[in-house]
């Protein structure tokens, strides 16, 4: 009984995280500027990483945690590279 309730809570959190990812995607498509899209992409990667952790809790598999660790590191590299490009890319133009 309590475990059903807990599972429902995890399911609800997955729904909330998916909703958050959806909103981040809307912001990414809408823009209006490049920095908004990069910010949304950063939020998207964090939300996705947390979603992986909740999947790990529901399936009891530690592998999802490892995947989350990799996304946490790679998401940063992507955002830093994009921001660097926004900062420098147009200076040359």
């Amino acid at each position: 009984m309590t475990s059903d309730l807990a599972t429902a809570a995890i399911l609800a959190s997955q729904f909330l995280l998916l909703l958050g990812m959806g909103m981040a995607i809307v912001r990414m498509v809408r823009g209006p500027r490049a920095q908004d899209r990069v910010l949304a992409l950063d939020a998207l990667s964090i939300d996705g990483m947390l979603l992986l952790l909740t999947i790990g809790i529901r399936t009891g598999s530690i592998l999802y945690v490892e995947a989350g660790l990799i996304i946490a590191v790679l998401g940063f590299a992507a955002t830093a590279a994009f921001a660097k490009f926004l900062l420098r890319g147009e200076v040359i133009e």
């Binding site: 809570a9 995890i10 997955q14 947390l50």
Partner: peptide, 28 residues
């Protein structure tokens, strides 16, 4: 899978994750 842990622990986990996901969603 959550049935393998004691009931109150499962509830604590659910509450923690739900609160965190709610904050993430508010951020979005």
């Amino acid at each position: 899978v959550l049935a393998t842990v004691p009931g109150w622990v499962a509830l604590t986990i659910g509450a923690l994750v739900l609160a965190g996901a709610l904050l993430v969603c508010i951020g979005s």
